[in-house]
């Protein structure tokens, strides 16, 4: 049994509860338990690209410092902080590399953290749960723990930007990734390829320029459908929200009838590994995935 210091991020506590609960359940089954770190703060979701803005680097540094202390009380825990949200992952990874390599940035940030009795020792690595599954758990073990293979599920693995960009944060090859495909395959699902696997969904433009997100989502979903997918699997709560809610609003406008349900990769794992269905919180989804799952006799 290995325990990991787990940083949830705000969304896994609000509208992506199914993502978190399913991940915690399968992590226990796979002996790679995610244990929530105490007293965490929002990472900022996007890392600043301005070299002179240290303020926006404080939050991720505090998380790294607190997680480093958390690791001490865990069982067999490596010096790693694990995330589920790909935006958190990217932000923490980029800032971690940035301050590790640049003492002139870390020093003033540590000075700020001093009053909170925190000091980052440059001793942590940031890992996405997908990396843990691939590198530490292994697909073989996952395959063995599958109780209900996802037969009939034709999934399009949508990476979005933050799992593959920028270089400091990528968890796989940025032009030909395989981690989501390999995982879905070991769960017994059929893989559908679409060239728009990392075509940006429009991200935070949803707040003030919804039309951009709308166009992007249309393209992404259409391409997935043309290639024969009946579901989309993602690792980012913002991608999930955009793909999910925009499809629903297109349906309301009469533009689209056939909607693709959106799954977090951990939800697929939970279904295949026989966890109780209610931990997936499908009621949070705009497009109810239960219809498809029932049709395929998976729940």
């Amino acid at each position: 049994m290995v325990q990991y210091s787990y940083f949830p991020g705000c969304n896994l506590k609000t509208n992506a509860k199914g993502f978190e609960k399913s991940a915690l359940a399968v992590s226990k089954q796979l002996d790679a338990e995610l244990v929530e770190m105490p007293n965490w703060n929002c990472c900022g979701t996007v890392h600043t690209l301005a070299s002179d803005n240290l303020m926006k680097r404080i939050a991720p540094t505090r998380i790294l410092s607190r997680s480093s202390k958390h690791v001490e009380i865990l069982e067999n825990s490596p010096k790693e902080v694990v995330t589920l949200c790909s935006m958190c992952n990217s932000t923490l990874k980029v800032v971690n590399k940035d301050i590790k390599n640049d003492e002139s940035k870390l020093e003033p940030i540590n000075f700020q953290l001093e009053v909170d009795e925190e000091e980052y020792q440059k001793d942590m690595e940031v890992k996405h749960f997908l990396e843990i599954l691939r590198d530490s758990v292994g697909y073989e073990k996952i395959e063995k723990s599958v109780k209900k293979p996802l037969k009939g599920l034709k999934v399009f693995c949508y990476y979005g930007c933050m799992l593959l960009h920028p270089d400091e944060a990528k968890i796989d090859d940025e032009e030909m990734p395989a981690v989501l495909e390999d995982l879905s395959e070991s769960l017994g699902a059929e893989i559908i390829f679409s060239p728009l696997f990392k075509h940006c969904c429009g991200s935070y433009h949803i707040v003030d320029q919804e039309d951009i997100v709308n166009t992007q989502v249309q393209k992404i979903i259409q391409s997935a459908k043309q290639n024969g997918a009946n579901a989309v699997v993602v690792a980012c709560p913002l991608c999930a929200y955009n793909l999910d809610a925009q499809q629903k609003s297109m349906e309301k406008q009469g533009l689209d009838k056939e909607l693709l349900p959106i799954f977090y990769f951990t939800q697929l794992m939970a279904i295949a590994m026989g966890e109780a269905s209610n931990i997936n919180h499908f009621e949070e989804h705009h497009i109810n995935p239960e219809k498809l799952l029932k049709k395929l006799k998976l729940i």
């Binding site: 991020g9 705000c10 969304n11 609000t14 509208n15 992506a16 929002c42 900022g44 979701t45 996007v46 949200c85 935006m87 991200s203 935070y204 433009h205 949803i206 707040v207 003030d208 709560p237 913002l238 929200y241």
Partner: peptide, 8 residues
């Protein structure tokens, strides 16, 4: 979702 608001 707050992830959208925070990043925006």
């Amino acid at each position: 979702p707050n992830i959208a608001l925070v990043s925006n």
